[in-house]
């Protein structure tokens, strides 16, 4: 298998992140873990944006990933983190395969609102499920990795951080290849001209279906990692504001590069953390101004700063 420049750069950054994890304070490790896990969910949003669809309900798969990890440990004795994360992805794939049959018939605002509707249905079910902790959710059981159990505290935090970075690297490389592969490019072609794609003998609907299911799996992985990192899951994971957050991060980063959601998720987490610290009751206003500034000055997201610099160097 051959790796290109982007993949080697991603691997180098991932190794640097893992090493950084050994010297950085716990609060920063936690912040980065949650940011990277959310970035994986955002990758799912971005995959769909590239095909012209905006999901207002990606929280559905984030929640499915998280709850599968939580329920696996609590009710089914699945304590291995890798197995639980994989199971979360499989459950998300199964759900997406069913919902995708309906959702990929729709475009634009109809797709967006329908995806939101499914997410809110799950929220409603979880809120009305006392066995799953209702609105409070429940704690995630202590987990292991291939039989090894971290001894809690910082050890668990470092382990889940390393796991998140490695999962992020794996997904980033796969998505980087996916966007250059047949399905990735042709999904962009669907966004640009669905009629032409159809008259090339391809089914735009099935391409979007494949893309939707793949995006669901990636987002569920992000949800599962968040559950491992926080040790808790609750119905808020499927709430519309959570899905809105993922769109916010997607817009902040832009669609220009597979690294953009990771950068945007870190920027988002830092801005939100400091906003809450500075103005506890009106922190949303800071986020609002941030998004406004990005849309006005960087309509193609933070990544356009990098792409502009590269274009300048070439010229």
């Amino acid at each position: 298998m051959r790796f290109d420049k982007t993949e080697i750069s991603l691997a180098a950054v991932a190794i640097a992140c893992v090493l950084f994890g050994f010297v950085s304070p716990g609060w920063l490790i936690f912040l980065l873990t949650i940011a990277f896990a959310k970035a994986l969910v955002v990758q799912g949003v971005v995959m769909q944006m590239r095909s012209g669809l905006v999901s207002f309900g990606q929280g559905l798969f984030y929640c499915i990933g998280g709850y599968t990890v939580g329920m696996g440990g609590q009710f089914f004795g699945i304590h291995d983190a890798i197995a639980a994360l994989s199971l979360g992805m499989l459950v998300a794939i199964a759900v997406a395969m069913v919902l995708g049959l309906l959702l990929t018939r729709y475009r634009d605002i109809f797709f967006a609102m329908l995806s939101l509707a499914f997410s809110m249905i799950l929220f409603g079910i979880l809120v009305k499920s006392p066995g799953l902790g209702s609105t409070d959710g429940f704690n995630v059981h202590n987990w292991t990795i291939f039989g090894w159990a971290p001894d809690g505290g910082e050890s668990s935090q470092h382990t889940v951080f390393t796991l998140t970075v490695l999962a992020g690297l794996m997904i980033a490389v796969l998505i980087h290849r996916y966007t250059k592969a047949g399905i990735g490019v042709i999904c962009e072609a669907v966004r640009e001209n669905e009629v032409r794609v159809e008259y090339l003998g391809l089914s735009p609907r099935w391409l979007l279906y494949g893309n939707y299911v793949s995006a669901a799996a990636v987002s569920a992985l992000g949800g599962g990692l968040t559950a491992l990192a926080t040790g808790h899951v609750d119905p808020e994971m499927a709430y519309w504001t959570t899905s809105g957050e993922f769109i916010f991060i997607a817009l902040l980063g832009g669609l220009g590069h597979v690294a953009a959601p990771f950068i945007a998720a870190v920027v988002f987490s830092v801005v939100r953390t400091y906003a809450i610290e500075l103005v506890p009751h009106t922190w949303q206003m800071i986020l609002g101004f941030t998004l406004l500034g990005v849309i006005v000055f960087l309509p193609k997201g933070l990544w356009s700063l990098v792409s502009r610099k590269k274009a300048g160097e070439r010229a």
């Binding site: 592969a181 047949g182 490019v185 042709i186 962009e188 640009e192 001209n193 003998g201 089914s203």
Partner: peptide
């Protein structure tokens, strides 16, 4: 009916891939 945000070459490459198989590769 073309793909406006792609180059002319990429338009043709998409058409070539479509002609080769109705199921584009994932990787």
């Amino acid at each position: 009916q073309l793909f406006p945000e792609m180059t002319v070459l990429d338009n043709l490459i998409v058409a070539l891939a479509a002609a080769e198989s109705p199921r584009p590769s994932f990787l």
